[in-house]
Amino acid sequence: MAMTETEQQTSRCGYVAVVGRPNVGKSTLINHILGQKLAITSRKPQTTRHNMLGIKTEGAVQALYIDTPGMHLGAETALNRYMNRTAGQALRDIDVCVFVVDRMRWTEEDELVYERIKTLTCPLIIAVNKTDRLEDKKQMLAHLQWLNDKMPHAEIVPISALHTQNIDTLERVIGQMLPENEHFYPEDQITDRSSRFLAAELVREKIMRQLGAELPYQITVEVEEFKQQGRILHIHALILVERDGQKKIIIGEKGERIKLIGQEARKDMEVLFDTKIMLNLWVKVKKGWSDDERALRSLGYQDS
């Protein structure tokens, strides 16, 4: 599986779409590959809403990873429909597709993803995630054989995204599949997204992690100010919800919840931006934004 010396010296670059049903570990996988946190994660399905490019340059190989929203059944709101469209758009003009599946489980939503990718002509890798939790190896081998029979042209790589097991093998397989190309981005660039976008996503992650069970999906974050003054980066972020009750939940008793959200988001921002952060958060009610196509566009939910 190791690359030859000639392969290592050949300049390779291409787009790698990481697809799968919600909450299967796509964002965690990309964060570990990149060696730092760019994609937000939580146990709540549909945490990822936008396609985001994570750029990994190692020697002669530059892989451009596209983190996609999980493809899910149903399209109850404009936001749901946007997320499914966004995930589908990531499959255009890609060079490698990594289909992340969860060890022994195969659901209706896995089947939905399979239906979307089965006609792709680019190389396909099935990354079987969370295999570190399996004790019955015979059962796993039977499942891997089932996957192989279903997608005979795919390369199957068992991994654990959370514990970074076999990630190096996955990267090596991806690198071998990428086309010969000059690199598209500078060696030190890690994403195509703006710092404002990353800041907003970090705030949204902390809300979803703390209030996943209490808060539905109708929440988004808009950065209104992003300004470096001396050694301090000042960030003002507006948290938009749909109902007064949601606003109260986020603020919490005597403002304790929003204070904690801000503290946790600020810690991650200081690591990501490598500077001292002054973060101010506000909560505002904007009724019906998640099912309003115009409101979604104004908040940055635009098809590419």
Rank of each mutant, 00 (worst) to 15 (best):
R103P: 06
T164Q: 15
D274V: 14
L279K: 10
D95F: 02
L170E: 09
A63H: 01
V173E: 10
S304W: 04
S27D: 06
L79P: 01
E225D: 07
N51A: 03
E182H: 12
V16G: 10
G88R: 05
Y185T: 10
G59F: 14
V283K: 08
H50L: 02
A2L: 12
L79R: 04
E182N: 08
Q9S: 13
I207P: 05
P152I: 04
I174T: 00
L38N: 04
I239C: 03
D102A: 04
R133P: 05
I55A: 03
Q218N: 11
V221E: 07
Q246K: 00
K138M: 08
G262Q: 14
A154K: 02
K44L: 08
G25D: 03
T6P: 14
Y217G: 00
K259M: 08
Q263T: 08
F184A: 13
K137I: 14
M83E: 10
H32W: 06
R204I: 11
S160D: 15
S160G: 15
K206I: 06
G14P: 11
K138S: 13
E115S: 12
K267T: 14
V96L: 02
I126E: 04
I251T: 05
L202W: 10
K26P: 00
E108T: 12
E171I: 09
G255S: 03
L233Y: 06
K26D: 01
V100K: 00
Y65N: 05
R204S: 13
T4P: 09
S195I: 07
I174L: 01
G175C: 13
A2W: 09
A17W: 00
S290C: 07
K247I: 02
D67Q: 04
R85K: 07
L29C: 10
V24C: 02
V271S: 10
V113G: 00
M269S: 12
S42A: 12
R85Y: 00
A87W: 01
E5D: 11
V283I: 09
M1N: 03
R297I: 10
A87G: 12
G25H: 11
K286V: 03
D168Q: 12
K247Y: 01
S304T: 03
G14D: 08
P69F: 04
P152N: 02
E155M: 03
P45M: 13
T191P: 14
L38Y: 07
F184Y: 15
K284H: 10
Q228L: 09
G245I: 06
M83A: 10
W106M: 04
L238K: 15
L279T: 06
A78E: 10
